[in-house]
């Protein structure tokens, strides 16, 4: 039998057969890939532990001297070498909670509008605007807070809050403008974009089939959003809120500029406060003695601990809240 030979193309060299050119898939490549990704993942975990360990090591002296009192006393007096971080812990938690109370409903409502209701031509411009909000440097937002937001808050919303709710301990006392509430509001502005964009992604991932199921029952748009979209997405939305909380706890620059930096614990949100992050930023350069510096390191350690704790608690909450249905669904 004649083998049909292909007419040779000028300039082409003799080619070996295709089979000899193909190398067998190598087991080694697969292994290396596995080890490489594992190493990367471990490096991230190691980094977290290293940071924690460094912070703990850097604050050894302070931990030894004040022990548990560091967390439970309110005196912060570098001259007398007395360091108690309670006002900062209080300030960090309260300002973050205020921020969440303001930002979460706003962000989720925005995300719902963007994915479920807004006409197509509105969506992209609005998304870009929200992302631009995230791009504003913290210090500039802080300046805006001092020169624009605080005078306005002082003139209109704060007096209104005082007349309406002045009888509660949270809105009594003099209005300086600079306050825990102002700090919370500025954090809310800062975490709004992240919660919104993560929530938007979560809502976009809800299968259209779910929406159609609700529409086919004669549901209105709000009902579709409620029974088919939000309930489907609630676990993911909780995740978005946690991300926001993580940001809120660590927010430094803008908060420092509007919160008043006074280490005190006052029920009134009109009173100035202080946060863990702010005290580190403010006093780091002045920390001349070892103990002072170590106390600041310990403040950092506490902030680190609170952030991790908040994440853990939130994850447990999500598991018990939404996990029940998913675990049963797997059976």
């Amino acid at each position: 039998m004649n083998v049909v030979t292909r007419p040779s193309i000028p300039g082409e060299t003799e080619q070996p057969s295709l089979a000899t050119q193909m190398s067998r898939p190598s087991r080694f490549g697969d292994r290396a890939f596995e080890w490489l990704t594992l190493a990367m993942a471990l490096a991230v975990i190691a980094l977290v532990f290293l940071v924690g360990w460094q912070l703990a090591r850097g604050s050894q002296l302070a931990i030894a001297k004040f022990g548990f009192h560091f967390l439970t006393t309110s005196t912060w007096d570098p001259v007398a070498e007395q360091y108690g971080a309670l006002p900062f812990i209080y300030g960090t938690i309260v300002s973050s909670l205020i921020a969440l109370i303001i930002a979460v409903p706003l962000s989720i409502a925005t995300a719902v509008y963007l994915t479920e209701l807004a006409p197509l031509w509105v969506r992209q411009p609005l998304v870009s605007l929200i992302e631009m909000l995230a791009a504003i440097p913290s210090v500039i937002l802080g300046l805006w807070g001092i020169f624009v937001m605080i005078p306005w808050l002082k003139a209109h919303p704060f007096p209104l809050l005082k007349t309406l709710f002045g009888w509660t301990p949270f809105f009594e006392g003099p209005i300086y403008g600079i306050s825990m509430l102002a700090g919370g509001i500025i954090i809310a502005i800062m975490i709004l974009p992240i919660i919104t964009s993560v929530s938007r992604e979560i809502l976009r991932s809800v299968p259209n089939l779910q929406r159609e199921a609700a529409y086919a029952l004669g549901a209105t748009r709000w009902e579709v959003t409620r029974i088919a979209v939000l309930s489907y997405a609630k676990k993911g939305l909780a995740g978005a809120v946690i991300l926001g909380l993580g940001r809120a706890l660590g927010e430094t620059m803008a908060v420092t500029m509007v919160i008043g930096n006074t280490p005190q614990i006052k029920a009134s949100l009109f009173a100035p406060g202080y946060t863990l992050a702010s005290v580190i930023a403010n006093e780091f350069t002045e920390a001349t003695t070892d103990l002072y510096l170590q106390a600041l390191f310990e403040v950092g350690l506490v902030l680190f601990g609170i952030t991790i704790l908040a994440n853990l608690i939130a994850q447990v909450l999500i598991k018990t809240m939404a996990g029940a249905t998913t675990t049963r669904a797997v059976q």
Binding site: P207, L209, E212, A213, A214, L217, G218, S231, T325
Partner: peptide
Amino acid sequence: AAVRRRVGMVFQKSNPFPTM
């Protein structure tokens, strides 16, 4: 919505509400 209340629909892929 009123139309869909009177004309129901079943889809190609089953789509029960997973949280219910």
